[in-house]
Simulated scan of single mutants.
Amino acid sequence: MSRETLFNAALLLGLLLVPIWALLTDEPFTITLATRAVILALAAAGLNIALGIGGLVSLGHAVFFGIGGYAMGILAHHAQGFTPLMEWPFVIEGTKSMPVIWLLAIVVSALAALVIGLLSLRTTGAYFIMITLAFGQMFYYFAISWSAYGGEDGMSIYVRNDFPGLNTLAPIQFYGLCLALLVVVLVFSARLRRAPFGLSLNAARQVPARLEAVGLDPMRLKLVAFVISGAITGLAGALFADLNRFVSPTMFSWQFSGEIMVLVILGGVGRLFGPVAGAVTFVALEHVLGGLTEFWHIYLGLILLGVVLFARGGITGLIAGREASHD
Rank of each mutant, 00 (worst) to 15 (best):
T5Q: 13
L6R: 14
F7T: 03
N8G: 14
N8L: 09
L13V: 14
L16M: 14
L17T: 14
I20L: 15
I20D: 00
W21C: 13
L23R: 13
T35I: 06
R36D: 14
A37M: 06
L40P: 05
L40C: 07
L42I: 05
A45K: 01
G55P: 07
G55D: 11
L56V: 14
L56H: 10
V57S: 09
L59M: 05
L59K: 00
G60P: 10
G66D: 08
G68C: 02
G73A: 15
A79D: 13
A79W: 11
A79E: 12
P89W: 03
V91N: 13
G94D: 07
P99C: 08
L104M: 11
V107H: 04
A110N: 06
L111T: 04
A113P: 04
L114D: 08
L114V: 01
G117T: 09
G117P: 01
G117K: 09
G117D: 03
L118T: 06
S120G: 08
R122D: 08
I131K: 00
I131L: 15
I131A: 09
G136H: 02
Q137E: 15
Y140L: 12
Y141F: 15
A143C: 09
I144G: 02
Y149A: 02
S156E: 08
I157R: 03
Y158C: 00
D162L: 12
P164D: 03
L166A: 10
N167M: 07
L169T: 14
C178G: 00
A180W: 06
V183A: 10
V187L: 15
V187C: 10
S189Y: 12
A190L: 11
R193D: 01
F197H: 06
G198N: 07
G198K: 09
L199V: 14
L201S: 09
N202L: 10
N202S: 10
A204F: 08
P208H: 09
R210H: 07
G215D: 03
D217G: 06
D217S: 15
R220A: 15
R220I: 09
L221S: 12
L223S: 10
I228W: 06
S229E: 03
A231G: 03
F240T: 05
D242T: 00
M251E: 05
F252T: 09
F256C: 04
L263P: 00
G267K: 01
G270C: 10
F273N: 02
F282T: 05
V288N: 08
G291D: 08
H297A: 11
V308T: 04
V308D: 03
L309S: 06
R312I: 06
I315M: 10
I315F: 06
G317D: 04
I319S: 05
S325W: 12
H326R: 12
